[in-house]
């Protein structure tokens, strides 16, 4: 095991500036999502809002939670979890979307 993950033992130093950049991007996206919500897009509103939320959370997960530099097991864990959750949602709507 020791050979495959030594890189994970030493913290990957991310410059302060990078974090601040990510924060600025997150704030911008927040303002965008608020702005967009005032535009009348009918049922597209919620989809756009969720897409922006997904973009924001990707930034948080990859940089703030440093998954970008995490070992591969965490990547797989995260993908499995997200897939599981998405499956739960889709299958719940296998009932509700036909009601």
């Amino acid at each position: 095991m020791s050979h495959t993950q030594d890189h994970a033992d030493e913290p990957h130093l991310i410059p302060y500036g990078t974090y601040i950049g990510i924060w600025l991007a997150l704030c911008m996206l927040t303002l965008v999502t608020v702005g967009v919500s005032y535009a009348d897009m009918r049922h597209m509103t919620i989809i756009v809002a969720l897409l922006i939320a997904c973009a924001k959370s990707t930034l948080v997960v990859l940089w703030f939670m440093h998954v970008k530099f995490e070992n591969r097991a965490i990547w797989w864990f995260l993908i499995a979890t997200i897939l599981t959750y998405v499956t739960f949602v889709i299958l719940t709507f296998a009932d509700y979307s036909f009601r």
Binding site: T87, F88, L91, A94, D95, F98
Partner: peptide, 22 residues
């Protein structure tokens, strides 16, 4: 096993399509 839960609910009033899928 995570995809099949609603087979416990076939008689509880789900949508027909949902029942068939599950």
């Amino acid at each position: 096993g995570s995809l099949v839960w609603a087979h416990h609910m076939f008689t509880s009033g789900m949508a027909d399509e949902g029942r068939i899928i599950f």
